[in-house]
């Protein structure tokens, strides 16, 4: 554990609480993509299958359980909890996200380099890395449809975007001291941050004013 990874994890955790705060305060879920949340739930459920395989640390275990449960809770609020779910904008949450869930899974299974002893978990983990890198697309699509996004939604998306950026700093740090590199997570993280970069640029430039896309 180093400071970059710790900041990254806290940013990630913060993004959930910003979102819960936004929904409670505004009493609506306008501008939020349910589909992105659904993808994140698949990501966490697949990646954290290792909760049943081995123990790393209390910190990791608690974070994993929080990521899964907070994502499930937000899905419940956005789609099923009244009155919030009545304001869900399904018209603009129109990204065809299911179209890359299945081809992606097939692709990862096919290009796995280490068939012999990789095991099902390794394939699930790899897939979760790539799926996470794309999971924000429905949310980005949504704010592009509406051409603007509320400040607090912007804070939520920015903390979610900067979290992976700080993981990149963490990987650079780890590589510098140990010369170890995990290519899949590093490349997935770079792709993920790149997809956010446009938004993060606009976010930083807006400096708290209304974010227009």
């Amino acid at each position: 554990m180093n400071i970059f990874r710790f900041i990254a994890d806290l940013l990630h955790l913060t993004s959930f609480f910003i979102l819960i705060f936004k929904i409670r305060k505004s009493m609506n879920v306008v501008g939020l993509s349910y589909k992105s949340k659904e993808l994140y739930l698949v990501v966490f459920l697949l990646r954290y299958l290792d909760l049943f395989l081995y123990f790393v640390s209390f910190y990791n275990t608690i974070m994993k359980i929080l990521y899964i449960s907070l994502t499930a809770y937000l899905i419940y609020i956005i789609r099923f909890r009244r009155p919030y779910c009545l304001t869900y904008d399904s018209q603009n949450d129109s990204f065809p996200h299911l179209k890359f869930i299945y081809p992606g899974a097939a692709l990862v299974t096919l290009i796995s380099l280490d068939y012999s002893n990789i095991g099902l978990f390794e394939i699930c983990w790899t897939y979760s890395i790539w799926l996470e890198s794309l999971a924000i697309l429905p949310q980005l699509h949504m704010i592009q449809q509406t051409k603007e996004c509320e400040n607090i939604t912007g804070h939520y998306m920015a903390s979610l975007g900067f979290y992976r950026f700080f993981y990149i700093l963490n990987w650079i740090y780890v590589y510098y001291y140990t010369e170890k590199i995990q290519w899949i997570s590093t490349l997935g993280g770079i792709l993920q941050t790149a997809l956010y970069s446009d938004f993060l640029y606009v976010y930083l430039k807006s400096q708290g004013r209304k974010i227009e896309i």
């Binding site: 990874r5 994890d9 990630h12 990646r47 290792d50 081995y54 790393v56 640390s57 990791n60 974070m63 994993k64 990521y67 095991g119 978990f121 390794e122 983990w125 993981y167 997570s185």
Partner: peptide
């Protein structure tokens, strides 16, 4: 070995 595949990141 099993530890080779142990993931310590989130």
């Amino acid at each position: 070995s099993k530890s080779k595949y142990k993931k310590d990141e989130l």
